[in-house]
Design a protein around this nucleic acid. Structure first.
Length: 304
DNA sequence: CGACTTTGACCAGCGC
DNA sequence: GCGCTGGTCAAAGTCG
C-alpha cells in the first residue's frame, strides 16, 4: 500500500472552485466593465466584490497549501512507522529478546519468551518436554496506550472484541491488571492483559498473547464492550520494556516506534483515516476539491 | 433476556 | 510442605 501515491489525486485543491474568477478571458472583463459604464457606484461595488473574492481565493489557496504540507508530514510519518514495523517484525522473527527484569518468572511467561526466542529454548531441558506447537502459538506483543489520567477503566480499543474474565492486583504494581479473551471468534486463543504503567499511570500497557485465528473486525468501533469509552490511541504513547513492545506515538513523528501485532497494523490505518475524516479543515478542503471537480466537469459539459 | 462485567475462590508454579 | 503470586473460573450483578 503506497499511501503517498494516494496523495496526488486527493490534494489537488488549488482553488478549482473559483477558477472562473481569475481565468476569465480579458475580453469578458472588458465587456463586463464596459456594460457597467455609466452605472457609477455599481462598478465600484463589483470591483470591491472581485477584490474580496480574490482575497478569499488567496486565503483558501494558502490553507490548501498548509493542508498539503500537513498531509505530507502524515504520509512521511506513516512510511516511517511502516518501515519500523517491518524492521521490528524481522527482529522478532530472528528471536531478539532481552532478559526480563523480573527475577521471578512464571513457567507460562518463560514459555512465552521461549516462543519468541526459539534458539535459547532449544537448550532448555524443560522446553524439550513440551509440544512445539505451544511455542509457536504463544506470541506476545505489548502496546502502550495513553489515556486520561482520571479514567480508571482498563479498556484498550484495538478493533477486536474482548471479554474480560478476570482482574488481579499484582505484586509489582498497585494498579489492578485486567485479563481479556478475544470474544470475536469463539475459538480464538488470543488473550490480552491490561495494566497501568507504574511510572506513568496515564499509560495503559496491553500485552497480547497469541495470534487471532480469524479476520479482523471490519469496524474499529466494534468496541470490546458497550461501555468502552476511552483509549485515545490517536495519541498512543511510548514505552519500552524487556518484552517486545509496540512503541508508538503518532503525534511525535521522529520518536522511535515499533509495531508487531497484525491487528494493530489494521487499526492504525483505520485510525489515520478516522483522524482525517474528523478534521473539519480536511473536510472543508475535501468538499472544495469535490465541488471544484464538479464545477470543472460542469463547465466542460457546458462547453460541449 | 442475553451479553458482558465484577469479584471472590480456586489452582498451579515457584522459592524457601 | 507452606506461603506467595499470577492466572483462571464461575456465580452474581449490571446493562442495554
Amino acid at each position: 500500500m503506497e499511501f503517498t501515491s494516494l496523495l496526488n489525486n486527493s490534494l489537488d485543491l488549488n482553488a478549482k472552485p473559483l477558477r472562473f474568477l481569475d481565468e476569465s478571458p480579458p475580453l469578458k472583463h472588458q465587456v463586463l466593465e464596459s456594460s457597467f459604464i455609466g452605472l457609477g457606484t455599481s462598478v465600484v461595488n463589483v470591483k470591491e466584490e472581485k477584490g474580496a473574492l480574490i482575497e478569499e481565493l488567496n486565503r483558501v489557496s494558502a490553507e490548501n497549501k498548509k493542508l498539503t504540507e500537513l498531509l505530507t508530514v502524515m504520509c512521511e510519518n506513516y512510511t516511517e512507522l511502516r518501515n519500523q514495523l517491518v524492521e521490528q517484525t524481522s527482529k522478532n522473527v530472528n528471536g531478539v529478546e532481552n532478559s526480563n527484569a523480573a527475577s521471578r518468572k512464571r513457567k507460562a511467561e518463560s514459555s512465552n519468551i521461549d516462543a519468541l526466542n526459539p534458539e535459547s529454548s532449544s537448550s532448555d531441558e524443560e522446553s524439550s518436554k513440551k509440544p512445539r506447537e505451544e511455542h509457536i502459538k504463544a506470541k506476545i506483543s505489548r502496546v502502550c496506550v495513553r489515556t486520561e489520567a482520571s479514567d480508571t477503566s482498563l479498556i484498550v480499543k484495538d478493533g477486536y472484541q474482548w471479554r474480560k474474565y478476570g482482574q488481579k492486583v499484582t505484586r509489582d504494581n498497585p494498579c489492578p491488571r485486567a485479563y481479556f479473551k478475544c470474544s470475536f471468534a469463539p475459538t480464538c486463543p488470543v488473550k490480552k492483559k491490561v495494566q497501568r504503567s507504574v511510572e506513568d499511570q496515564s499509560i495503559l500497557v496491553a500485552s497480547y498473547e497469541g495470534e487471532h485465528n480469524h479476520a479482523p473486525p471490519s469496524k474499529v468501533e466494534s468496541n470490546s464492550s458497550g461501555s468502552n469509552k476511552n483509549s485515545n490511541l490517536g495519541s498512543t504513547s511510548v514505552s519500552s520494556t524487556a518484552a517486545p513492545t509496540v512503541t508508538l506515538d503518532l503525534t511525535k513523528p521522529k520518536q522511535e516506534s515499533k509495531l508487531d501485532a497484525p491487528e494493530l497494523q489494521h487499526f492504525f490505518v483505520e485510525q489515520m483515516a478516522s483522524t482525517l475524516t474528523k478534521d473539519p479543515n480536511f473536510k472543508a478542503a475535501l468538499a472544495a476539491a469535490i465541488s471544484g471537480k464538479f464545477l470543472q466537469s460542469n463547465n466542460h459539459t457546458d462547453k460541449c
